[in-house]
Simulated assay, not measured.
Amino acid sequence: MRRELPGLGSDPASVRQRIEGMEQILERMFVVPGINKPVGLDVILSLIPGVGTISAAALGSYIAWEARNLGMSKWQVARMAGNIGFDMLLGAIPVIGAIPDFFFRSNTRNLRIVRKHLDKKHPGSRTLDVQATPGA
């Protein structure tokens, strides 16, 4: 009997856990003081001309790759690829590309697409979304 570490399996719950973790790293790694907005590696990499934008797109493509392995439709994966491509175009604008990248969060959009699929096709993979509620 082979034992797998939590989150490293190919089951839908493990895939969800990996995708949610990647989205958090890319879009919500820390909160910027003063504006109280989450920022992740995607925006930071957009500040590096050329290679940063390509790196961010490659990391974001991991979510689409996992979605494809889940058996999501070609249409859903194409939508995700479109989000990644659009985000890459925005981020390609030298220096100021980080500003639109800050608002268009392709990885969060792609996570929503995957969650919708998983909630419909694999409801047992659902996790509690525990986020701090403002004012609580």
Rank of each mutant, 00 (worst) to 15 (best):
D119F: 11
R79A: 07
D11A: 08
M22G: 03
S61L: 09
D42T: 11
G60K: 03
N110A: 02
I99N: 07
G60W: 07
E27S: 13
D101H: 09
P38G: 10
G52R: 01
L90S: 02
P12G: 00
V39N: 12
T108P: 03
R112Q: 15
I35K: 14
G71H: 05
V114K: 00
I84Y: 00
G34P: 05
G50I: 09
P49G: 03
E23K: 06
I54L: 12
L118N: 01
Q24I: 09
T127N: 11
L47I: 12
I63D: 00
M29P: 06
P100V: 04
E27K: 01
P49Q: 09
W75T: 10
S10W: 11
I44D: 12
H122F: 13
G7L: 03
M80F: 06
I19H: 04
A136N: 13
D42G: 11
Q76C: 06
N69W: 08
P49V: 07
M1H: 15
V95I: 15
K121P: 07
Q76I: 04
G40F: 03
D119W: 10
L45Y: 02
K116W: 08
L8G: 10
V114D: 01
H117N: 08
T53C: 08
P6H: 07
F102D: 03
Q17G: 08
P12N: 07
V15S: 04
